[in-house]
Amino acid sequence: MSAYTPEEKVKLARNPERPGTADFIQALFTDFFEQRGDRLCREDASILGGIARFHGRPVTIVGHRKGKNLEENLTCNFGMPGPEGYRKAQRLMKQAEKFGRPIITFIDTPGAYPGKEAEERGQGEAIARCLALMSSLTVPTIAVVTGEGSSGGALALGVANRVLMLEHAVYSVLSPEGFASILWKDSSRSGEACAVMKLTAQDLRRGGIVQGVLREPEGGAHTDWEATFRTVDAALRKELAALDKLSPRVLVQQRYQMFRAMGRDLPAAGEEEA
């Protein structure tokens, strides 16, 4: 497909000129009504969500928001949510389920915020609840990794019936810097980390982690937003049409089986290691 190395893809995925959740909402949906706050503690702008219409039908949208300039970056904490963001996401998703709306999520985050207040208010619990809730939703859910999807902070919006990725987006257990820092105690070896982490859309498609890779324009999504929007729009329509045919029970079943299968085939003692 493309000649980019994994390291180059990480740079592309982080390009600030790439369309983000707010841009996708504006381009692909109409009638967007933003919903704020977790009803417990505060509003977390690093998660953007609300109700909108997708080709006429109401859907719920939840995504990471990094912001487009320094001021917005600071308000959105560079797309690193705290527990309030994940609890807002849960609130919106439960509401979507109540009203039978499909849910579309956009994933683009360096990870959940490792801060003092975030820990105090249960960052781990908030992410865990997101995973458990998403796994049990009776409405169709589609996640699109649009930029960088790092760690549990990304996965919290990613337990969907279909997980799609833009061609140059990356999705990984941790940022390459964090990975190198943990394994080799040296975050400057992140380039090396990119090479072994298998974080590209193509690798993840082969590994059965994502179900679709969405073509980006020549040079990356930031070079031609309209083309990117057309591709994502078409993919969402197609996947939603397929999921519409499934009953609530089957939706839950299909999603469970999909994640259940990840890392299931392990050798018993005596067999050769992979």
Binding site: I127, A128, L131, A132, L133, S135, S136, S151, G152, L155, G158, V159, Y171, S172, V173, L174, F179, I182, L183, M197, K198, L199, L204, G207, I209, R255, Y256, F259, R260, M262, G263
Partner: peptide, 26 residues
Amino acid sequence: GARMQEGIFSLMQMAKTAAAIQRFQE
């Protein structure tokens, strides 16, 4: 935390275990 050497497959165990617990509790 996550087993770094197993990369994204390690991350996905979070979804898998949370889903299994959720089912069990339901």
